[in-house]
């Protein structure tokens, strides 16, 4: 690793000030858990001149209910998400997704904010948040701006964050609090494996008509970024909840996905997985809806 100037900041204002000062003339990277960044810096030819450590930023550490919804600070670790009573109660899918990221050691360091900023298409933190229509709160020189998560990702390892900006908060909007959601990952091993495909499904149930309301399906590792399966969602909206409808939504979701072949799996195998995981994620969300009824 080549050397750099190191700044440890006490909060997000401090971080933004350091970014503003150095991002014009230097290549600056933000470090939180470091599980992705350090692995990258050790092997990447493009080293930053300045590294800003936000892992101790006091205002980015909490999981709280606000007027906007459920706010998760950028440096909340995957382990903290797994253990958070409010997340386990409202969004078990989010806790389950955190549990399949890396291993204990990486979950204790790695942060949800970092998982999103790294923007790897196979990230396990993304699909559940995408299905819950999460909003990203970005801190910059002019204050905060909000971007829907599905507009936050630009491509593999690319987001809308500018050099002087910082992912500060992840907000699950109030209208989706407690929305039944299910996440599934298919990897080649149980531990430390990247997803071949991952999927999250979320919907409310109109129990009188027994229909899907506001169905949302998100898929990872099947496109340059985490995507919504919009055609499958449109098919389900207002439709009666049946096993056949869920299976058909899975088939339609295959058309929403654009997977590639690589050394982990072929595109065809991934397409099959999209169908199966979408159906099972819908079934899981429905089971949760029934349990919560």
């Amino acid at each position: 690793m080549r050397t750099f100037e190191f700044f440890a900041v006490k909060d997000s204002h401090d971080a933004v000030a350091v970014l503003a000062k150095h991002s014009v003339s230097s290549k600056v990277r933000v470090i939180a858990g470091g599980t992705d960044l350090l692995a990258e810096l050790k092997f990447s030819p493009q080293s930053p001149n300045v590294v800003v450590d936000i892992s101790r930023a006091e205002d980015l550490k909490s999981i709280t209910l606000t007027d906007d919804g459920l706010s998760i600070g950028a440096v909340v670790t995957h382990s903290q998400i797994m253990q958070s009573p409010i997340i386990r109660e409202m969004f078990p899918a989010l806790a389950n997704a955190a549990h399949v990221i890396g291993a204990v050691q990486t979950r204790n360091l790695g942060t949800l904010g970092g998982n999103l900023v790294t923007a790897v298409p196979s990230m396990d933190g993304g699909p559940t948040l995408m299905a819950l229509e999460a909003i990203i709160s970005i801190a910059g020189p002019d204050g905060r701006r909000q971007v829907p998560l599905n507009e936050f990702f630009v491509g593999p390892r690319k987001t809308v964050l500018k050099a002087d900006e910082l992912l500060a908060e992840i907000i699950i909007p109030r209208r989706n609090l407690g929305k039944p959601t299910h996440f599934l990952k298919f990897g080649l091993r149980k531990g430390q494996a990247l997803a071949l495909v991952n999927a999250a499904a979320s919907f409310w149930v109109d129990w009188e008509k027994h229909t899907f309301v506001a169905p949302r399906i998100a898929l990872g590792a099947v496109a340059p970024k985490v995507i919504r399966a919009l055609q499958a969602e449109a098919y389900l909206e207002g439709r009666e909840i049946t096993p056949e409808a869920m299976a058909e939504a899975g088939r339609i979701a295959i058309g929403d996905a654009k997977p590639i072949s690589d050394f982990r799996a072929s595109a065809g195998y991934r397409r099959n997985l999209v169908g199966v995981l979408t159906k099972r994620a819908l079934e899981g969300a429905y089971a949760l809806a029934q349990a919560k009824r």
């Binding site: 190191f6 440890a8 470090i31 858990g33 470091g34 599980t35 350090l38 692995a39 590294v51 450590d53 892992s55 382990s79 890396g102 291993a103 204990v104 050691q105 990486t106 204790n108 360091l109 430390q192």
Partner: peptide, 24 residues
């Protein structure tokens, strides 16, 4: 951070010491 041979406990939590800056 794949192999865990560097695992130490920081403030009660197991971490990969190869993925943490000393300054952190």
């Amino acid at each position: 951070g794949d192999c865990g041979a560097c695992t130490v406990i920081v403030d009660g939590k197991a971490v990969n010491s190869c993925l943490m800056l000393a300054a952190q």
